[in-house]
Each structure stands twice: as structure tokens, then as C-alpha cells.
Design a protein around this nucleic acid. Structure first.
Lengths: 200, 200
DNA sequence: CGCTTTTGACTGACTAGTCAGTAAGTACGA
DNA sequence: TCGTACTTACTGACTAGTCAGTCAAAAGCG
């Protein structure tokens, strides 16, 4: 009966509920995620959750916003401006760093698979995808301007890389393939070097 | 004795249940798939379903077998032996032909997202993946032997292409991106032409 | 005090799976 | 050829459990 030490430093109830949701998702997955399980992680009753969020979907939409914000912040940390190096670091963020969050990747694929039925989910996944594609496009265009990359269709190249990223994550989860992410990291490099990089 | 009488024309209950499961999946998705809904499509009671399959998971495992068999048959139809053309037709099967089955793609992503929790599902998705990778590897090795493709790591190239395929399907479903499959078809071609095809 | 937060008890809807019984067809023995 | 035994396919009623969400009351706090 002690899921976690109640951290008094952050008395913000929302932050606590977000953390509880995250733990419940990691432990039980999305399909078996219930208000009761979130409440157990939160250390309060289910009605306490309903006091802060009217419906389960409201809570989950808020959780997605929370998660996407965190991820966007971590991408924003990439500060190099050199196009080739920046591309490298971005691909590492997307394909290497996520390997540590296996259980969250599992739950996120479950939530992604509900996008066709839940507009609130779809909206947020789209927004996140758009942001990442924008980052990739910016790097590619920068590289083209500097003559490091060939004059390719930056939008198409960004979509191609995102397809590799999504494919790798799907495969890592579905096939429980521990090497799917590394394989895809290599494939992304092949794509960058053969399609993007100008070989003088 | 043998439950499968080969030439009992019509009224094979199993076939009917497979069709009912398929329709229920298309109409309601996996998350909202219930025995009751399958029974409604079947036109009989829920107990009739339980008469043929002990548990819901048994039924769904049988349905996956059914589906994978169908898909493998359709891939086996590709008869060209010329490596470049065969690769082209295989990629069409994997990325173009599936566009017609949007609702089934949605339901399949849902089921795939349950693979970490259901070994029976994971097993079957792995088997299907292995089969497709084997087909791709065979074509690539054939192409290398004939000097049409460079002497690349066939296993890695097959995995790279499958990553693009899985990424495209995930994106088509999650982002409701009607062009995700076409974009990926183009990306797959770029990969084949720049990484696989021997230039000069 | 009064306001926010939390609780416990509850509801109604829905779920997979069970069970006894039925109808129709088939196999077999005399 | 009749009758008995058995099989397949199914039904309707039921159990036992889950779930999100509601609500009146109470606790905590500034």
C-alpha cells in the first residue's frame, strides 16, 4: 500500500496526477489503464481524480499535452547549428534516447492506435509530428543553403525520416525487437548520406 | 474426428465466424470488439461463438492466422523473377495495395499494439514479419547474384524496407494521413535506388 | 467561518464466460 | 427399416465481475 513517496515539494495536484498517470501507464499499459489504478498511484480516491478532471478522456488529453511539452523541450535542447551534426543529434534524440523508455513507448503506441477514434488524441499526435517535421525541415533547408545537402525536397525528406522513426518504434514495440531502433538509426544515416549529402 | 471436412460446400461455421470477426473489427475497431458484436455480425447468439472458440483470445488468434494466411497467399502471387521488377511489385503489395483496407489497417495497428501483452498476438506478427523479410532478402540476394544490386547486407536492407513499411502504415492510421503510404512508396524507391542499385 | 479538496458508497451499463436444455442430423445394430 | 445412441450447432438465461462517473457528507485549511 505504498506506491510512491508523496513528494511534498510539488504540491501542485496536476503535476502529481500527471506523474501518477505516467506510472499507471508504464505499469498497466493503456488498455488496462483505469481511473482506479491512476488513483492508486496518486495515493487518493478515484473521486479525487474526477474532482480535477471531469472525464477520463480529459485527463488523458492533458497527459498527452504534458508529455508532448516535455519531449519538445528535450528536442529544443539540441543547440548545434551545424546542419550535419544537428541532423545527427536530432536522429539520436528520436531513435536512440527513446530506448530507455520502453514501457512508455508501448503505452504510446496503444494511445496512437486510438487516434482514429479519439479526435483529441489525433490532434495532439499530429501537432507533435508537425513540430518534429518542422525541426527536420529547418535543418535540411539550412544544410541546402550551406551546400552541405543536395537541393532535395526538404518536406519529403523530413517525412521520409519520420516514417523511419515511426516504423522503428512500432517494430521495437510490436516485435519486441531490441535492435529495431539501432537498425533504423543506421538506415536513417544511410538515407541522409545517400539521398541528402552532396557527394561533390 | 477431423473438424475440417474439405468439400462441405457452404455453411462452414469457422469461415462464417472469421468473416463476422472481420466485419466487427472494421465497424467497431479492436478496443470495442466484443463477442456480442461478432455474434451480431454472425447472426447467432454469443454462446454460439463460445461453442466454436473457448475464449475470445482463442478466436482472435485464429482470426490472425486466417488473415496472415490470406496475406501470405497474396504475396505468393508475385511471380516475376527479375529482381528489380520483383522488388517493385513486392513494395507495391506492401505499401500501395493496402490503401484499400483502411479500416482493417486501423484494427491491425490496435492488435499490434497489444502484442506486448498477448504472446499469441506477438508470435503471429513476428511470424508474418519473418516471412516478409525472408521474401525481401531472397529478392535482394538474387539481385546481388545477378549484379543488379550492390553487395549490401541483405538482412539489413530487408529490415530497413520493413521499417519504412511499418512506419508508413502507422502514420497512415495515427495521423489519418492519406498520403503517408505514397510518400513511403517513394522513399522505399529512393532507398532501393541509392543504397541497393549498383550505379555505373 | 467558508472554501477547496477528498472520501466512501453507490449506480447503471457493459463484459466474458457458463450452463441446461433443444432441435436436427448421423451412425449403427438388429 | 426401425429405433436407439450420439454429435453438432445452437439458444436464452444467468453469473460474477469490471468500469466511468455521481453525490452527499466530511475533512482540511487559511
Amino acid at each position: 500500500m505504498m506506491p510512491d513517496a508523496p513528494d511534498r515539494r510539488s504540491a501542485d495536484p496536476n503535476e502529481g496526477i500527471m506523474r501518477a498517470t505516467s506510472r499507471a501507464l508504464r505499469d498497466h499499459g493503456y488498455a488496462d489503464l483505469t481511473i482506479k489504478r491512476i488513483a492508486e498511484e496518486y495515493g487518493k480516491s478515484t473521486a479525487a481524480i474526477h474532482y480535477h478532471y471531469d472525464t477520463k478522456d480529459d485527463l488523458l488529453a492533458a497527459y498527452l499535452d504534458h508529455l508532448i511539452d516535455q519531449f519538445a523541450s528535450s528536442v529544443r535542447e539540441v543547440e548545434t547549428t551545424d546542419p550535419a551534426e544537428r541532423m545527427d543529434l536530432l536522429l539520436d534524440k528520436l531513435l536512440v534516447d527513446v530506448a530507455e523508455y520502453r514501457e512508455l513507448l508501448v503505452a504510446m503506441l496503444e494511445m496512437r492506435s486510438q487516434a482514429p477514434y479519439k479526435e483529441a488524441f489525433r490532434e495532439r499526435f499530429r501537432q507533435n509530428d508537425e513540430y518534429l517535421r518542422y525541426m527536420l525541415k529547418a535543418v535540411i533547408n539550412h544544410g541546402i543553403d550551406e551546400g552541405v545537402f543536395r537541393d532535395v525536397d526538404a518536406d519529403h525528406a523530413a517525412r521520409a525520416l519520420m516514417t523511419i522513426v515511426d516504423g522503428a518504434r512500432t517494430r521495437a514495440v510490436v516485435l519486441d525487437d531490441g535492435e529495431a531502433l539501432e537498425t533504423a538509426r543506421q538506415t536513417a544515416d544511410e538515407y541522409v548520406e545517400t539521398v541528402l549529402v552532396a557527394d561533390d
